[in-house]
Design a binder for these strands. Structure first.
Lengths: 163, 163
DNA sequence: AAGATATGTCAACATGACTGACATAAATTT
DNA sequence: AAATTTATGTCAGTCATGTTGACATATCTT
């Protein structure tokens, strides 16, 4: 009845640190995106298309976990403005494989640069072993049931999509 | 020894891990919130009111970095449904100090329990030193210029707001 | 008494989610 | 060959949560 759930056991500190850390982490990109008239949705699409060239629309929907209607608007803008191109699939001509253009790569790189600066700053006093603990933690925070194509790459072979 | 990236290299791996880890982390709460007809906005408000009892409305606006109009709708629902109560400030009777009710604490505790389960799972193979590295990293990811009242508490004295 | 501050509220609007329905082209199955 | 399924795109409407601007009220400060 009186729940008093597990008063001493709750990880309030980590929960809060994750909130603030992620807020400021995405804030770096948000600021820059304004200048382009884009939002977070555009960033996420650009990021994964750049990192996993030739991604199918269906794969992207899986990764982002949004509906095709929602993706449609954002993707259309990125196509119209020349940040992404589509190529018809070789085996299956219904598929539209997605690739970042040079313009798209430049944008994604700029945003990743800002976020990398923050990460490097936060890691500067952490040795190599500590950095590996960090990766281990972040990977273990991610659901592994029903992984999408990107997570399969991240977890499956350790093979990296780009250098 | 994973090669520490040379200057100029981008931290694609960490950027991506943060995206997926945070998505699944907040996903735990999102799912549960649906049953209450609430969203993330309600969760954030409940969390900080619970953790920092007697928080002023203005402080909450600072922490959440949203406008009072946006907060207003969410806060009104939480007040109407009895998850939060307001008390007039002692020194300054214009202030409305916010407190979680038992009902509110139960909800926040439940959500924190779900997230704590995930954190514990992710930390199970990490020793105490590693866990401290983790906290250090997350703290270093947060902007420290212009800290709000909550961040002052987190950074300022190390004094914890609750057990 | 006048002004500043803390809060609340009305109205309008933007973004990025959602559901449901339907269209087209291409692949697959019968 | 015809029927069905799949991959994608699109129209229309809704919802949640953010925004700006204007204004009201109570209370504190000067």
């Amino acid at each position: 009845m009186s729940p008093a759930p597990r008063a001493g056991e709750l990880r309030w500190d980590i929960i809060e640190l994750l909130f603030f850390a992620y807020r400021d982490f995405v804030g770096d990109a948000d600021h820059e995106l304004e200048a382009f008239g884009f939002g977070r949705a555009h960033h996420r699409v650009m990021h994964f298309v750049h990192r996993y060239p030739g991604l199918k629309v269906a794969d992207l929907l899986d990764v982002l976990r949004i509906t095709k209607q929602s993706l449609g608007r954002v993707l259309k803008q990125l196509l119209d403005e020349g940040y992404i191109v589509q190529k018809t699939g070789n085996n299956d001509r219904r598929q539209r494989l997605l690739y970042a253009t040079a313009k798209g790569e430049a944008l994604v790189g700029k945003l990743a640069g800002l976020q990398t600066d923050r990460i490097n700053r936060a890691m500067q006093d952490i040795d190599t072993a500590g950095q590996e603990v960090l990766r281990q933690f972040l990977r273990a925070m991610i659901d592994r049931d029903d992984p999408d194509k990107v997570l399969e790459t991240i977890f499956g072979s350790g093979k990296k999509p780009r250098e």
